[in-house]
Each structure stands twice: as C-alpha cells, then as structure tokens.
Computed example of a mutant assay.
Amino acid sequence: MALLPVALFAALGGFFLSGLFREDPDALPSALIGATAPALTVTELPGKPVMTDAALTDGEVKLVNFWASWCVPCRVEHPQLEALAEELPVYGINYKDTPQAALEFLEELGDPYAAIGVDGSARTGIDWGLYGVPETFVLAGDGTVMLRFAGPITEKVVTDSIAPAIKAARAR
C-alpha cells in the first residue's frame, strides 16, 4: 500500500513524458485517419460544380480542403492549392460563408477546386472533426482518410506531410 503513491506518480509521469516525444507535437489528432470519410451535407455554390459523396470514392487520390473567404490563412495557402490541383483533384468545402463572398474570393485568387460544396450549417465540418479553417484532408481513391492537416498549407507542409500522404494513398 505504501508503494501505491509512487506507482501512480510514475504512471502519471510516464504519460506526460510520452506527450513530449510525439512525432509532431503541434499536430491535431483525428479519429478519421484510416476510416472512410464522412458523408457530405453540402449545397451548391452557384455556377460551380457541386461536390458529392460519389466524388470521395471515385478511385482517385484527392485533397478535400475546408476554406472560407473571411479566412486570412486560406488566402496564404491558396497558391499551394493551385499547384497541387495540377497534380491531383482538389475539392473545396466552403465553410460558413456567403455565396457572394466565396465567389469573389475565387474570382480574385483563382479556382483550384474540381468541385465545391457549401457547408453553411457547419454540419459537414462537425462530421469531419473540423477545428477551423483551413483544414485539408488527403483521401485515398476509396475514400479512406490518409491525412488531416489543420492550418495553412505551405511549401514545407506539402513536402513534409501532404506529398508523403499522397504517395501512401496512391500505393494503397
């Protein structure tokens, strides 16, 4: 009985130490990794192809990017999305935005998206475990979530996280 406090302290210390040695301490965890992407509850952005559930499982590796016109980091990552769109389909989910503002954003910066779904109610964001925008997911051709990246995509993120996840998705 006298060793119980020592054992509890050691177990708690081990738990905290394990957190210090994670692969990426800034990465936000996702229960979706290795699971099929949740169904979409989105509407159409006028004049743009609408994103569908069928697109998630069409056999092609793809990115799904949650974005909004009011999101400053979304502007920062936009050139990276345009570059990635030359390599694979990029699907956009416009999050809690107005159609006019979203269309103006795309007109100003360019439209890298193969199709777009509007998540005005945030239902899809909740289902996907969204913390905020931007967030990007790499999906294998069968719709399996291979990577979730929270934050703006930079060249370093493409090299260190997105590209390896795309390669792994293609190897499935």
Score class of each variant (00 low, 15 high):
residue 77 E to V: 08
residue 163 A to K: 13
residue 124 T to V: 10
residue 57 T to N: 13
residue 12 L to W: 12
residue 91 Y to P: 08
residue 1 M to P: 05
residue 53 D to Q: 06
residue 80 Q to H: 14
residue 117 G to R: 04
residue 155 E to S: 12
residue 101 A to F: 02
residue 104 E to K: 14
residue 8 L to C: 02
residue 19 G to C: 06
residue 144 T to V: 03
residue 5 P to E: 02
residue 142 D to S: 08
residue 125 G to I: 02
residue 79 P to N: 08
residue 107 E to G: 13
residue 153 I to P: 03
residue 76 V to Y: 15
residue 153 I to W: 08
residue 55 A to C: 02
residue 105 F to P: 02
residue 24 D to L: 10
residue 58 D to A: 14
residue 59 G to H: 09
residue 77 E to N: 08
residue 51 M to V: 07
residue 32 L to I: 07
residue 113 Y to P: 04
residue 17 L to T: 15
residue 141 G to M: 01
residue 2 A to I: 11
residue 76 V to G: 08
residue 56 L to P: 05
residue 106 L to G: 08
residue 76 V to S: 10
residue 159 T to L: 06
residue 9 F to Q: 01
residue 98 T to V: 14
residue 90 V to Y: 09
residue 97 D to W: 07
residue 146 M to G: 03
residue 93 I to P: 15
residue 46 P to G: 05
residue 24 D to T: 04
residue 66 F to T: 00
residue 71 C to R: 00
residue 131 Y to L: 15
residue 80 Q to C: 10
residue 86 E to L: 12
residue 19 G to F: 07
residue 9 F to W: 05
residue 80 Q to D: 12
residue 92 G to N: 00
residue 11 A to T: 06
residue 14 G to C: 07
residue 22 R to F: 11
residue 133 V to N: 09
residue 149 F to L: 00
residue 1 M to H: 13
residue 145 V to N: 09
residue 123 R to T: 12
residue 94 N to Q: 11
residue 102 A to T: 03
residue 93 I to L: 09
residue 168 A to I: 00
residue 16 F to L: 15
residue 16 F to C: 10
residue 143 G to N: 02
residue 2 A to S: 10
residue 135 E to A: 03
residue 38 P to R: 05
residue 167 K to D: 01
residue 148 R to M: 06
residue 78 H to Q: 03
residue 25 P to N: 15
residue 50 V to Y: 05
residue 105 F to R: 10
residue 166 I to T: 02
residue 139 L to M: 05
residue 34 G to M: 02
residue 156 K to N: 13
residue 72 V to D: 04
residue 92 G to I: 00
residue 33 I to G: 00
residue 116 I to W: 15
residue 35 A to W: 09
residue 167 K to L: 01
residue 74 C to D: 09
residue 50 V to I: 14
residue 49 P to M: 06
residue 46 P to C: 03
residue 62 K to R: 11
residue 50 V to F: 04
residue 39 A to W: 09
residue 150 A to H: 06
residue 70 W to L: 09
residue 47 G to C: 05
residue 165 A to R: 07
residue 65 N to R: 06
residue 121 S to F: 14
residue 4 L to I: 02
residue 118 V to K: 03
residue 53 D to E: 04
residue 81 L to E: 15
residue 75 R to K: 13
residue 96 K to W: 06
residue 129 G to C: 11
residue 76 V to M: 15
residue 36 T to S: 15
residue 126 I to A: 14
residue 157 V to I: 07
residue 65 N to W: 11
residue 148 R to Q: 05
residue 37 A to T: 00
residue 111 D to V: 13
residue 92 G to E: 00
residue 123 R to N: 06
residue 103 L to S: 11
residue 104 E to R: 13
residue 40 L to F: 01
residue 61 V to Q: 00
residue 79 P to M: 03
residue 20 L to I: 13
residue 125 G to S: 11
residue 49 P to C: 09
residue 12 L to S: 11
residue 6 V to D: 01
residue 147 L to E: 01
residue 82 E to N: 11
residue 116 I to N: 09
residue 88 L to M: 04
residue 93 I to D: 13
residue 47 G to I: 03
residue 56 L to T: 11
residue 99 P to S: 07
